[in-house]
Design a protein around this nucleic acid. Structure first.
Lengths: 340, 340
DNA sequence: CTGAAAGCGCTTACAG
DNA sequence: CTGAAAGCGCTTACAG
């Protein structure tokens, strides 16, 4: 089947292609009567704009990019990304914007992919996740002046939209909850210390502990894998003053912790309370089911897409804080054990 | 910074834009000397082809599409997709082809997304996963004559590439292994019965059981979620002649089964052997670690991208069978219990 | 081996 | 409110 073009629509409607373009794009310059006629003809012909032609004549590429820098295997078990992507998609597809996905090794590769996609005019903007405190992608975004949304706190040095949640508040709530249960020896198995949000949560954790008059707690950095999560847990539980509760920065590590505790003969939640980070389906997949900080990752993705498309559309960048994650109590947390 | 164009390269090299195009695309029509000069100038200018311009002048869109029809939450815990996508990406990015990802509700939405992307000339081809025995996407692929690769067995009615593995052989091996351990009451918790590969595996399972002279075994269809996997397990384990081993069509359900067995006080692997479907990291995340059918999903994705790009490039469609999944024995399977 | 030119399907000033 | 025309950055027959 031949593709319909605006030339064909113009011929059938008895107007110029310019008029067709104006009508189709809802711009002034055509009377209501002709607009209606043109739209009907376009519809009959099943016309769809050629993104290539549009993009070539200076308009949008109608696509945005997302480069994820994680290894394939850890990506597989980490439910965050697919939920986030699904949220992005919901908003993007409504506005007929495509998502260009790239799975890369590291930031250097992400930068290269970004430069290329931008140079090829494939994308109108970019979604940036997993921001580092010192992030090599930021200067590139500035240099390219590419519309961007950060999944994280706004950066004053960058004119970009941002979407984040009050994870500090959530961590603080979690500590309050555990302290109310009588826990005093609380540890944290954190994520990558290079990550901005991982750092912020650690800071919030220390602060909350201090607020309760508790000594500076143990914190172990990890790469979010089950392996390092399990290892950190084993180390913490081998201490003489072992914690009675541990907060994990994601779900995978909390699940791994469950195994370690079992292997070490430490009852959960009887002797150890475990609190997971993201509340994915993983938390429901294991026994005891994991208490977790719940937040709507899909909505997070949707908001990210929304503010990105706003700046692509010429509006000033907005920063959106989504709701504070809430504590979903399940079976992996309980009262602190009474020590002998 | 201004984008470099071939016009600029032509001017600086003292040749026509046509010559530049030939040189840049490695076609005959320019002398080696000029080609070298042109390439150097292009390099100095940091030139990148505009995909829009290329695509508009009849060349490729340099992108392929993948529409996944699954809900966001189940997508999150199902490690298959991210591993598959990572495999696709590896090959695609090497050839500078972008991946257009769409997460949709059902086949109707997938078809609509496909039609749109194709009409907009956004994609040169498409990757089709989760084929149904009767699949409404197939006639659309035929109608559109869009280059496609099926993640599944070749369809005679469709001129498309296909990549599949001998999952029937793998299921058969799994049954052999369990029978050798003394199991005779073996059940299967299958996937969606509409799915071609789920059906094929069920057929292979029944056949293998028959080959061993065992009666027709119980098979339960599910939607691959932990919920239905757990439910099916509970049902099977409540039978008077309950199975001593169960094969699961994915990992999520096998993990859920572990919980059900625990709740019912049935020891794994003492009283029940559990065998998982895909050998993702999930199998290592739980205790006992799950015995599973292992296969290289990343390589599967890479091969899919490879044969798709071949037909996009004008070569005849190829069908590739990747290696038979192999059994990775861990702690969730063992000798059949001796019945009183 | 090389150059000049048309064309892909749109958008957008610029005249009327 | 409408039409004619240039231009986006490439590719590709078609002449030389």
């Amino acid at each position: 089947m031949k593709r319909a073009t605006i030339a064909e629509i113009a011929a059938r409607s008895g107007v110029s292609t310019g008029a067709v373009s104006y009508a189709l794009n809802g711009r002034p310059g055509v009377s209501e009567a002709t607009r209606k006629r043109i739209l009907q003809v376009a519809d009959e012909l099943g016309w769809r704009p050629s993104v290539a032609a549009r993009s070539l004549s200076g308009a949008r590429a109608s696509a945005v990019g997302l480069a994820i820098a994680r290894s394939a295997d850890t990506l597989g078990v980490e439910p965050f990304y697919m939920r986030f992507i699904a949220g992005l998609e919901r908003e993007l597809s409504e506005q007929r914007i495509a998502l260009l996905l790239q799975v890369v090794e590291d930031h250097a590769a992400a930068i290269e992919a970004l430069r290329l996609a931008w140079a090829e005019r494939r994308i109108d903007g970019v979604v940036v996740t997993d921001l580092w405190a010192q992030d090599s992608r930021i200067p590139v975004l500035r240099e390219l002046r590419i519309p961007a949304v950060l999944a994280g706190r706004p950066r004053p040095e960058l004119r970009a939209a941002a979407v984040w949640n009050d994870d500090a508040g959530a961590v603080s709530d979690a500590v309050d909850y555990l302290v109310a249960l009588g826990h005093r020896a609380i540890a944290r198995v954190a994520g990558l210390s290079t990550l901005e949000h991982a750092r912020a949560r650690v800071a919030a954790f220390r602060e909350a502990m201090a607020r309760h008059g508790l000594p500076d707690p143990p914190v172990t950095d990890t790469d979010y894998t089950a392996e390092q999560g399990g290892q950190a847990t084993r180390m913490l539980l081998s201490r003489r003053d072992r914690p009675t509760a541990i907060l994990y920065d994601n779900d995978v590590m909390a699940v791994a912790a469950l195994n370690v505790a079992q292997e070490m003969g430490i009852a959960v939640p009887g002797e150890l309370s475990i609190l997971a980070g993201d509340d994915s389906q993983l938390c429901l997949l294991v026994r005891p089911a994991l208490t977790a900080l719940s937040w709507d990752i899909q909505a997070f993705g949707r908001d990210a897409a929304r503010v990105l498309l706003e700046i692509v559309g010429g509006q000033p960048p907005r920063s959106v804080e989504v709701g504070t994650p809430t504590l979903t109590v399940r079976a992996s947390t309980g009262p602190a054990p009474v020590r002998g």
